[in-house]
């Protein structure tokens, strides 16, 4: 039985889908069989980030409704054999989801993969609730910015009340990714420090990802940034994926400025 991880954020646009794509690929690169699932019904996006938008034949709703089997709908990654992708429906509304169907799908995924990573829709509506309902763990993605952190706290509150594991008296493991850190701004006191964010949200940190203009370039091409060996964000995702696979990797302090000169120099040799 695999582990199901829901990736959530509260606020949209913080890099949730990018995180899912990179962590999924990262986990697969660690030799684990991994499925990434787009739960954002009506706003399919993960396919673009993974570069698989042309291969989508069946989607998640068709699988849940029995119009296609899971096997038919899963799409193999172009870059890693361990990674499979299940697309969201583009035409349907997220109201088509219901707990029973979601539970059945999640169970089948768990039986076939070591890691199942669910890309939650933004917001805290029904689509979000269905994504977290049967998850064993959640990764919360925030930006070091007030509205993202506040919305994340609301999402964590709902996670704690709606999760099946919590209802059964257990606990959902919660991990934080702080995304889009600008080291120079943290240094000059213009951006919240990781420690401050952890104080406020009171959950465990699993990784810090620095701002990286390469992320847009990567999504333009449909090649997750983790494939770029020179990218600071890609390296950060690599470390997080390894941690998810149980490897002990020290938390790199991306907030201190080995960034400045070193990064500029590294840039010359790209």
């Amino acid at each position: 039985m695999g582990i199901v991880i829901a990736v959530i954020s509260g606020k949209g646009g913080v890099g949730k889908t990018t995180a899912v794509a990179n962590l999924g690929l990262g986990v697969a690169m660690n030799g684990k069989r991994c499925a990434v699932v787009d739960f954002d019904i009506g706003q399919r996006n993960l396919d673009m980030i993974l570069g698989l938008e042309n291969r989508v034949v069946y989607d998640i709703v068709q699988v849940m409704d029995g119009e296609a089997t899971l096997k038919q709908a899963l799409i193999k990654s172009k870059v890693n054999d361990n990674l499979r992708f299940l697309a969201a429906s583009q035409s349907k509304d997220k109201r088509v989801l219901n707990s029973k169907k979601v539970q059945k799908l999640v169970k089948e995924l768990k039986e076939n993969f070591e890691y199942v990573i669910l890309d939650s829709p933004a917001g805290i509506e029904s689509g979000f609730e269905h994504t977290i309902e049967f998850a064993d763990a959640a990764i919360i993605v925030v930006n070091p910015e007030v509205s993202s952190i506040r919305d994340a706290d609301r999402a964590i509150g709902i996670l704690d009340s709606k999760s099946q594991k919590v209802k059964e008296g257990g606990e959902v493991a919660k991990y934080l990714i702080i995304n889009r850190i600008v080291p120079e701004m943290v240094q000059s006191g213009e951006m919240l420090k990781s420690d401050d964010i952890l104080d406020i949200l009171n959950i465990k940190l699993v990784g810090k990802v620095p701002e990286d203009s390469g992320v847009i370039d990567a999504s333009n091409q449909g090649k997750p940034i983790i494939l770029d060996k020179h990218s600071v964000a890609g390296q950060a995702y690599k470390r997080i994926a390894a941690r998810l696979c149980g490897k002990k990797i020290d938390m790199k302090d991306v907030e201190v400025a080995d960034s400045g000169l070193f990064r500029k120099l590294a840039g010359i040799f790209r």
């Binding site: 910015e145 007030v146 506040r150 706290d153 943290v186 000059s188 006191g189 213009e190 104080d199």
Partner: peptide, 16 residues
């Protein structure tokens, strides 16, 4: 500039 991150922390703590 120096203080805006700590302003953010205070405001967030109260709001949350």
């Amino acid at each position: 500039k120096r203080r805006s991150a700590s302003v953010a922390k205070d405001r967030l703590s109260i709001a949350i």
